[in-house]
Simulated scan of single mutants.
Amino acid sequence: MRKSGIESKMLVRYGAPSEGSDVFAMSDSYSFLSKGLSVVKRKLHFKDKYCAYEVSDPAVDNFYEFYNSLDFEPDIIVLHWVSGFISHKHIEWLSNHSTAKKIFWFSMDMAPFTGGCHYSWGCEGYGSSCKQCPATTNILASKLVSNYFAEKAQIIQKCDIDLIVPNRFVESQAKLSALGFSDIHTCYLPIDSNVFSVNQTREFDKEIVILFGAANFKNKRKGLQEFIKAIDYLSEQVPFESMAEHVKVLIPGVSEEIRRLFKFDCEFIEYANSDEELSNIYSQAHIFVSTSLEDSGPMMVVEALMSGLPVLSFSTGIAKDVISEGDNGYCSPIGDSKSVAENLITYLNLTPQEKRDMSLCARNSVIEKMDVKKHSESFLKILNII
């Protein structure tokens, strides 16, 4: 925003910005008891896989005072990741008491347009009223969700809020929502093409490196078990000597507990703590595998493509937007590990030149949509600034 000459400030839940910064962090207003009760509430009332943080986690209790202390009068407010930070009642207050003429809500997952779950696992109850919610464990919680949905819908419609989504897949989900957003816009998240670049020295006629990664391997949503099954099936179809000599599986950030789950001898490396470290990991690989079962991204899919890695993925999330079958990767039915393995075999059987062509296609397929400059132009156009 600032590079485009637009005065902007950011209000965040956590952090310690430097003096004179345009980033403002709130002090921790949660009591230890409040934090503990929110965890207990979530465990008692909601199933883990739905990530119903928006309903169970309390918003900050000093938001109004903090906002009023800021010396800033915005014309536009963009909400981002606000679960456990800003509630729908805070949003209504901002609409009534701030100088903003328009509020946008940038949706990183499904939470902004559902009754509180970040991932619905196929449930489309948010298309009506979120009654009989499958994320809940009892009648009380189900009632809590439907009431929350009704209150949220009333406020979103009253405040004339536009929704911004990160890809067409999430857009298709958001269009089902009965919350009543004024409009829905798609704006791909930016990937720095200078950081995530193609390894020009990558060779395709020797060992092929398969990369698998996720932010949290213990999260069932990320499909660790499905990846293990795919590699097991691959090792059964490809002679052991050939696998050991020509194929390496590279996995960053894996605990000893998870390492023991693999039968095939993988190479485990340290977790990446920066984009630069992550880019270096991509540069060591030839192809990236994502077995996420329920996802609005993941970001690693487009980072890998930007780095020149074809992607094998289940048909969910951003993979449905960006993967062109056989050109820059392959999609498999969700949960079908055998299909993932078969697609890996297809890739391994390509000639070195065909693999090189896929690498070039991978980067070209996303650079026009997701480079930082393109994102900035799209975002400002949505905000009606350009």
Rank of each mutant, 00 (worst) to 15 (best):
E276W: 08
K338H: 15
S365D: 05
V247G: 00
G5W: 10
K131H: 05
A215G: 15
Y126H: 15
F113V: 01
S107Q: 03
P166C: 14
L309A: 03
V78M: 12
Y126K: 11
I156A: 01
T136W: 02
F24A: 06
K248Y: 01
L234Y: 04
E256Q: 15
A59H: 06
S307Y: 09
L293M: 11
P298G: 13
R221V: 13
K222T: 00
C133P: 04
T99C: 13
S324N: 14
V311G: 12
E73A: 14
V165R: 03
G180R: 01
Q237G: 09
A153C: 02
S95P: 02
A174H: 13
I155F: 04
E226F: 13
V195T: 14
K47M: 02
V12R: 07
P166Y: 13
D232Y: 07
C117R: 02
V249P: 00
N349F: 03
G253V: 08
Y233I: 14
E294T: 10
S339W: 03
V249Q: 00
V23Q: 02
I103E: 00
P190R: 10
S18P: 03
T114K: 02
F85T: 08
W81L: 02
V254S: 03
R2Y: 05
Y64N: 08
H88M: 09
C117E: 04
C266N: 10
C187W: 05
C133Q: 03
K229L: 10
A59W: 06
I382N: 05
Q157D: 03
P352N: 05
G329S: 08
S235G: 11
E92H: 12
S315V: 01
K263S: 10
A214M: 12
I76V: 15
S146R: 07
S255C: 03
S324V: 04
Q200V: 13
E124F: 11
V372T: 15
M299A: 14
N349A: 07
D336V: 11
I76Q: 07
M108T: 06
E226Q: 15
G125Y: 04
F262I: 06
A174N: 10
E276G: 09
G308S: 14
Q173N: 06
N349D: 09
F32L: 15
N199F: 11
I345E: 09
C51V: 08
M1A: 14
N68V: 00
A362T: 00
L94P: 08
S4R: 11
E325K: 09
I164Y: 00
D205Q: 08
D321K: 14
N273C: 05
L360V: 09
S177T: 07
Y188F: 15
M26L: 15
F268K: 05
I191G: 06
G335P: 03
C51A: 13
D371T: 07
A230P: 05
F379P: 10
I228F: 11
E19P: 06
S242M: 10
Y148N: 12
F104W: 05
V198N: 01
N216C: 12
E257I: 01
P333L: 14
S34Q: 10
G122D: 05
H90Q: 12
L44C: 06
V39C: 02
N273M: 04
G5Q: 08
N199I: 11
